[in-house]
Design a protein around this nucleic acid. Structure first.
Length: 216
DNA sequence: AACATGATCAACT
DNA sequence: GTTGATCATGTTT
């Protein structure tokens, strides 16, 4: 926690500082309507912000996975349209939330133009603001654990199946670009976690310095 | 109507 | 590193 560096008078974000969410500088929907790997890499370091009735919460994305529109057997959309995967076939910039292993939920941001069936899975993030709100849903766990792992992230932010099709370019839910984009050396690439098919594809991207990454 | 599958987590050993 | 919990979804009967 809290490499709360003050270098030259510019403050970096930390969990203890005030952080004003600003939809005006968030990624527009067109940002997501691009090749999935580009979007995945660009999301590292970006801040997911959700406004709620009782406040708002924010966390810095540090681990994502790409699920490609073509040649990716691990993609839920690989076998075509279904009621579950319907959100993935809309245009980029909305949520695809699915249930897995009984209890859990996983959150994806849909990518590429309409009809492609692609998304980026949000796997882990560092809490920046609204920690109490995250804890209310996640329980009393260390801060770096709050959004470590896709189901934990989904639970902490209170995402559920009803959030399918929800825009991530709205005033109540959006993603802000990184204040400081991570350097190329900071970004690590690996096979995706937990997939049975498409194990050979290197489509997991994470920040190697982050304590919130689910597995090195 | 029944069954197999799975992009997981927490709690063990 | 292994395992059990537990259920939405898609596929088969």
């Amino acid at each position: 926690m809290g490499e709360n560096v003050v270098t030259d008078g510019k403050r970096r974000m930390s969990s203890l500082e005030a952080f004003e969410p600003d939809p005006a500088v968030a990624f527009p929907c067109e940002f997501f309507q691009r090749p999935t790997v580009e979007v995945a890499r660009a999301l590292l370091g970006a801040v997911l912000v959700k406004q709620e009735e009782h406040g708002w919460c924010a966390a810095r994305l540090v681990e994502v996975e790409a699920y490609l529109p073509e040649g990716d057997p691990a993609n839920h959309a690989a076998r075509g349209w279904s009621q579950r995967t319907a959100p993935m076939f809309q245009q980029g910039g909305i949520l695809y939330v699915y249930a897995i292993y009984g209890r859990h939920r996983c959150v994806n941001v849909v990518t590429e133009p309409v009809g492609c069936g692609a998304a980026v899975l949000l796997r882990a993030a560092e809490p920046i603001a609204g920690i109490a709100l995250l804890r209310r849903r996640r329980g009393d766990v260390p801060e770096e654990m709050l959004c470590r792992g896709p189901a934990n992230l989904a639970l902490a932010f209170g995402f559920d199946l009803c959030d399918n099709f929800r825009s991530v370019c709205s005033d109540t839910l959006f993603i802000q670009p990184p204040a400081e984009p991570p350097s190329p050396e900071e970004i690590a690439v690996s096979p995706r976690i937990g997939v049975t098919r498409g194990r050979d594809l290197l489509l997991r991207f994470f920040l190697r310095t982050s304590a919130a990454v689910s597995r090195q």
